[in-house]
Design a protein around this nucleic acid. Structure first.
Lengths: 230, 230
DNA sequence: AGAAAGCAAGTCCTCAGACAACCTGACAGG
DNA sequence: CCTGTCAGGTTGTCTGAGGACTTGCTTTCT
């Protein structure tokens, strides 16, 4: 089992993939350009056409290339973006929260216009759960709070928006738990912000987009102000 | 014979990929199992062997499969954490654009309150460039358009927001180019929407958050309506 | 001359067959 | 038990062919 040295040079497809990826990342093939055809690439790379095809498919799966039948293969990106978890962890919590706010304010407006009956019961359940979690631990309470906000976003019925909120949720959770622990907000506010959340849910239920947006805005701005003060 | 039948609902490789992915995600092929051979799969799926190979390569790139020469293809994971480029490519363009809109409307409001002198000159340059690109190609024009919108987002001075817009930009670019080419929007509107963009920039320059938000909203809603009509 | 219809070249998509490289398990001999 | 050999099956790669689609040019008509 000596895996020492390049016993196997490495699969040809991998070599071809790396070669093509280099052309893109090094800037020789700018975004938008049509790359040479399969037969040309096969000849210049010294491999077969199917090998080129599998290499192209790999880069297409990674989001660098896009092939259109009859037209050719085009460069649609020149780098694979790093993940959001790391970016959000590096960013300032106030910036994260500000973006969360502007997302959710508009989400609330959409939710008021599109919520279904299932959404209504889900919102009701989440509101009740949040109220109940007021007696629990900090983490538990924050989770219930986020679950309620997620229910609002889900009611907007936009998969991209739901995914986006899911991306922010972990960073929000940590930041909010820190905030709650640091300021002991729940002791100084025995209501736990229940009134504002209730107003938000009622506006969504009523289908009043304007009120829903305002309710979300005031609620989130209050928390954002507390974050800035920290 | 069948002239009007489902000539090609979607590329065969894509169908094969989805079929294989289902077997994995539905649990029929547990992690660690060796899946049937290429020739067998080709026969059961009713496609050629190269088609199966490209499907397998796609799932291997996504981290679900791993093929070892001489041994077979093995399942190494049953779910994939998709990056945003992939998710946005798969999502409906209208959903993507709707999220883009709700981001940018609020970004315009923030920009009106926070723009610096550098932002103002950048906005001015971007607007001029967009105007000039009206005479160029479709891709060139879309790029100039996106650059202007990016300048507005940058003026909001929130790194997370800027990154988020950058995440959406590639998907937007593709969708907008398709839209422009499909409908020939630029011929039917010789102004290229210059007036609305000018209004947006002037509101940001003037520091009028309300007007900036409204300008962005009307401009983006018009395009969104065109997308929905497609 | 300008616009519309049609043609032809180029390109990706798919298939079929073939051979090479490689892994695995069975089997015979020590 | 250990080892070397072998046969069968599998993936890796190449080639040739034809179909489907896009694009630009050409032809034809107004």
């Amino acid at each position: 089992m000596s895996s020492l040295g390049p016993l196997r040079p490495s699969p040809l497809v991998e070599q071809a993939t790396n070669h093509l990826r280099e052309q893109i990342t090094e800037g020789h093939w700018p975004v938008g350009m049509r790359i040479p055809g399969e037969t040309t690439l096969a000849r210049t790379l010294g491999v077969g056409r199917s090998t080129v095809r599998e290499a192209v498919r790999t880069l297409a799966t990674l989001g660098l290339l896009r092939s259109r039948q009859g037209a050719g293969v085009f460069v649609i990106a020149d780098r694979v973006t790093e993940g959001w978890p790391t970016r959000l962890r590096r960013a300032a919590i106030t910036d994260v929260y500000e973006v969360r706010m502007l997302i959710e304010v508009q989400a609330a407006r959409l939710a008021a216009r599109r919520r279904t009956d299932e959404d209504l019961s889900a919102l009701d359940a989440a509101l009740t759960a949040r109220r109940a979690a007021g007696a629990g631990g900090d983490a538990e309470f924050v989770d219930a709070d986020i679950a309620l906000h997620r229910a609002v976003v889900v009611a907007a019925h936009n998969p991209v928006l739901t995914d986006l909120f899911g991306e922010f949720a972990p960073a929000l959770r940590q930041g909010l738990i820190d905030l709650v622990e640091l300021f002991g907000l729940r002791r100084e506010d025995p209501d736990h912000g229940d009134a504002t959340h209730d107003a938000l849910v009622r506006a969504v239920v009523a289908g009043d987009a304007e009120s829903a947006g305002r309710a979300a805005q005031t609620e989130l701005e209050a928390t954002l102000a507390r974050l800035r003060a920290a």
